[in-house]
Design a protein around this nucleic acid. Structure first.
Length: 206
DNA sequence: AACGTTACCAACCGCAGAGCA
DNA sequence: TTGCTCTGCGGTTGGTAACGT
């Protein structure tokens, strides 16, 4: 649509961040706080676009990040939240302190999906695979066209979320997927409240 | 030891929505 | 009200480490 690029690509670095860039970014944000990503790179003396800076900070440099293996409990929480929220990684991340949406998304795609499939559960619908196939034959029949080079080689499933619109799976129902017997004694507290609300006890998260 | 395959993570891209003039 | 800018989100890709043959 003729949208102008988010940054002057000719003058920005791409790819992996260097230590020095990290240091500059952290130092700048410590001094000035987050925000105004557009102008941050210039102000911080970075040859990066604002988006890249934001992503680096959020996914890697933020001091409150947990960084480490997901616990069994986190696993189960992610599954439950995904069951309710779908691919709303930011919402899921907001309920898992110290985890980022990107991290959760990656973890979902590389671990949890596989795990669910192994259990005979369709990771999109969270229904038993056979039932899911009946519910979404199109998705099931979709050619595994976009199998990514590494992930999910034999797993298919990438299909459904072609676009942003369809990513809220179950969009046909017009609402958040199912009432699931969530039980498990976990108060999911899924009302859309600011992420500052205590999602789960920190003790449990550790 | 060399090569091919798989798994994983970091980063990029494009779009949508919010905010503002 | 409209159009523009900026931010945030979700999907996708590239690079590489780990593993298997």
């Amino acid at each position: 649509m003729g949208r102008s690029p988010c940054c002057e690509k000719a003058h920005t670095n791409k790819g992996a961040w260097t230590k020095e860039e990290d240091q500059r970014l952290v130092a700048y944000i410590k001094a000035h706080g987050e925000g105004c990503w557009r102008s941050l790179p210039k102000a911080a003396g970075l040859l990066r676009c604002g988006k890249s800076c934001r992503l680096r900070w959020i996914n890697y440099l933020r001091p409150d990040l947990k960084r480490g293996n997901f616990t069994q409990e986190e696993d189960e929480l992610i599954i439950k939240f995904h069951q309710i929220l779908g691919n709303k990684w930011s919402l899921i991340a907001a309920r898992l302190p110290g985890r980022t949406d990107n991290e959760i998304k990656n973890y979902w795609n590389t671990h949890i999906k596989r795990k669910l499939i192994a259990r005979g559960i369709d990771p999109r619908t969270h229904q038993p695979a056979s039932a899911a196939a009946a519910v979404a034959p199109a998705a099931a029949a979709a050619p595994s066209s976009h199998l990514h080079h590494g992930d999910d080689k034999a797993v298919v499933v990438r299909s459904s979320c072609g676009s942003r619109d369809s990513s809220d799976y179950d969009s046909t129902s017009g609402s958040v997927p199912h009432q699931l017997g969530l039980g498990g004694g976990i108060d999911l507290n899924l009302s859309l409240s600011p992420p500052t609300s205590q999602p789960l006890s920190p003790a449990a998260a550790n």
